[in-house]
Amino acid sequence: MSDGKIEWNTIRERLEAISAALEKGQSPGDKERILKARAEVLAREPEDTKEKDSLEIVEFLLANEYYGFESRYIREVYPIKDYTSLPGTPSFVLGLINVRGQIMSVINIKKFFDMPDKGISDLNKVIIIHDDMMEFGILADEILGVRTVMKASLRPAPTTFSGVLAEYILGVRDGHTIILDAQKLLRDKKVVVCEEVI
């Protein structure tokens, strides 16, 4: 290109190489990388999984911060497709969704905890928590996955937390994931809405 002429031959060779790679379905570099990543995962030391000492949590994002619930209170996670808002309810009640024929109420926990709310999008997920008495969904920005946490590694909530949120913290894992007390939420009277519209 430096002398102003297009090197058509070079271009043609490159195009041929690319089409060959596409036919093979995968670039050679990718294959290597995937294998390496799997090796790393297999090489990881197995964690101590004594049941009494560990907790299984589902980690999720709320306002760009990491939170978690104990997985024994979680029935399932569900992608929110559409919902029906309920007039006359407090602002933290998002509305109702249909989970395979079952009507489920959903709480926007960011409003409940007075966190900054960026609004609801397609990517929002609902974590349905339950115990033997109560069952409702909680809106989460993103689901990160299931983690096994050693109870000993939990730290109490730092004093900088205050307000409503502080009452529901079970502990903090690795300094960033805040594990919330799902049982307390399920039992909480504040979540129960009992109002009559006059």
Binding site: E56, V58, S71, R72, I74, R75, E76, V77, Y78, P79, L123, K125, I143, G145, V146
Partner: peptide
């Protein structure tokens, strides 16, 4: 992929509910 991810989470939750028998399922889910 998003849906697969959710499915994996749900599978993990189900596996943990199954207790000791669900351990292998947990690995598959991971």
């Amino acid at each position: 992929t998003q849906q697969s991810n959710l499915l994996a989470v749900n599978a993990a939750v189900e596996a943990s509910k199954a207790g000791e028998h669900g351990k292998g399922f947990t690995v598959v889910a991971q």
